[in-house]
Design a protein around this nucleic acid. Sequence first.
DNA 1: GCTTGCAGCTATAGTTACTATAGCATGTAT
DNA 2: ATACATGCTATAGTAACTATAGCTGCAAGC
Lengths: 134, 134
Amino acid sequence: MKNNLFTIGRLSEQTGCVVQTIRYYERIGLLPEPDRSPRGHRLYNEDILNRLKFILRTRQLGFNIEERRTFLELVDGGKYTCHKIRQKTLLHAQEIKRKIRDLKKMERELLKMTDQCNDGSGTDCSILATLFRN
Amino acid sequence: MKNNLFTIGRLSEQTGCVVQTIRYYERIGLLPEPDRSPRGHRLYNEDILNRLKFILRTRQLGFNIEERRTFLELVDGGKYTCHKIRQKTLLHAQEIKRKIRDLKKMERELLKMTDQCNDGSGTDCSILATLFRN
DNA sequence: GCTTGCAGCTATAGTTACTATAGCATGTAT
DNA sequence: ATACATGCTATAGTAACTATAGCTGCAAGC
Ligand SMILES: [Zn+2]
Ligand SMILES: [Zn+2]
Ligand SMILES: [Zn+2]
Ligand SMILES: [Zn+2]
């Protein structure tokens, strides 16, 4: 039914995405160039709103720009399979898993150091000793 | 005893840190400006080697540049306490913990989506449905 | 004697994904 | 008339490196 068009400020409110980022996504081609008002202001529709929401959800899930772009291209082109989408998602989940593993290792080492530290008022710190050990 | 000086290439080999990064650390003040050979080449000593090793260990532990700088300043100034060092380390461990928590949330959501996906050859994908849901 | 290769050097740009600023135009409210 | 809000473009800044371009100087091989 409705052709309601809205400005970038409204789109920003609807999505929680800041205005500059919306323009940025347009510049790099994740969002299409929208229509403009006579004054040159961008006018968005529901389609672009949904597209932006999609981008923001994939962002929340840690997909980088190129991954998001690939998703959008697959959907735009319509020539994808469920299997392909699942593979991309699994691949990304493995990246995340690796990051978690690396961070956990850091955390373990940090806590091991703070455990050994006597927390005193002197300058003889086992944390520094560990960091400076050869 | 020994005054053995070595070039940036040797320092790079000893530490595994690439040459450009060593020069970068010098530029931003983490490493001191070393002596130079008559030809203008940097000449390093054991002290700088150990300082760089320290920087690289804190890097491995995820400390950012400013945190590394603070550590070095505390040590250089000699006016720190074991307690202070431990606090900084704990604080950083908490950052790491937060990052792990965030990544785990992403991982859970990603795996939930891939679980529900039928992995088929069609285009009716529950992952996309989730990402496009309103 | 000439060329090639290597190791240094400096200065500058590129990376990622935004975010912020400067400087401008226009419409509305006081 | 003035201020404020919202929009615009173009450009710079962020973090922590990494890579490139273009230079010098030394040593070895032909
Ligand atoms: Zn990914
Ligand atoms: Zn301590
Ligand atoms: Zn930290
Ligand atoms: Zn699917």
